[in-house]
Design a protein around this nucleic acid. Structure first.
Length: 212
DNA sequence: ATCCCGAGGG
DNA sequence: CCCTCTGGAT
């Protein structure tokens, strides 16, 4: 797919999901970091119930670093993967306290060194809190990028590279969010709702509802 | 029953 | 490349 055609598709998608660039639910770096860690295999609604409760109990990195694992597990149980997440959250908080003065670092290198934080989570924080653009390559973005013919790669890092080369840097963060919203709403795995899709005319698949 | 806004490990 | 971790939504 040509760059021009990709940008046209992107413009149409951005018009379909106008709230993708609106104020973030979480303004504070630590809150967004923890909320993003919690979001794996979990709905936004539940993350947005659990995260405020978590910060009411543990207001900052110092409090989280000293949390009792069993108590934290109980608090986040409903988000799934709760043992891993609790261990990672406490590990993150301890690393923030010992290595970063209790603050969330602004460099990819430092973020991905935190337990339970990969490039996806790091780019969410970098893009939405620190205004450092990056493509958030989650399962939705991977799937749509493939279906749109924006990349043929399967390795997330190479997909990220392809997308960054294809799409304008100043919109990487918003583009990621738009792709995620469209992936959730219509362009689902394994069967996309092509008959309802407003950008079907720009899609190389043209309604072929076969998974990738 | 089956799938999901990840990451770590074999 | 594969697997595991988990509850909840559908």
């Amino acid at each position: 797919m040509s760059r021009r055609r990709a940008l046209l598709l992107l413009e149409r998608l951005e018009a379909l999901y106008p709230d993708a660039h609106c104020a973030l639910f979480y303004r504070n770096p630590l809150e967004l970091l923890i909320a993003t860690i919690l979001s794996a295999q979990c709905t936004d609604v539940r993350v947005n119930q659990v995260t405020p409760a978590l910060f009411a109990r543990y207001p900052d990195a110092q409090a989280l670093a000293a949390a009792d694992p069993a108590e934290l597990e109980d608090l986040i149980r409903s988000t799934g993967f709760f043992r891993n997440k609790a261990k990672n959250i406490i590990g993150c908080a301890q690393a923030l306290v010992t290595d970063h003065g209790g603050e969330v670092p602004r460099r990819m290198e430092d973020l991905v060194a935190l337990p339970g934080v990969g490039r996806k989570t790091a780019n969410v924080v970098l893009g939405n809190i620190f205004a450092i653009p990056g493509m958030v390559v989650d399962t939705h973005v991977k799937r749509l990028a493939g279906r749109f013919g924006w990349t043929r790669e399967s390795d997330p890092v190479r997909i990220e590279k392809d997308l960054c080369q294809l799409l304008p840097e100043e919109r990487w963060t918003q583009t990621s969010h738009v792709l995620i919203l469209h992936g959730r709403a219509l362009c689902k795995a394994p069967i996309p709702h092509c008959s309802l899709c407003p950008v079907l005319d720009l899609c190389p698949r043209q309604g072929i509802t076969r998974s990738h």
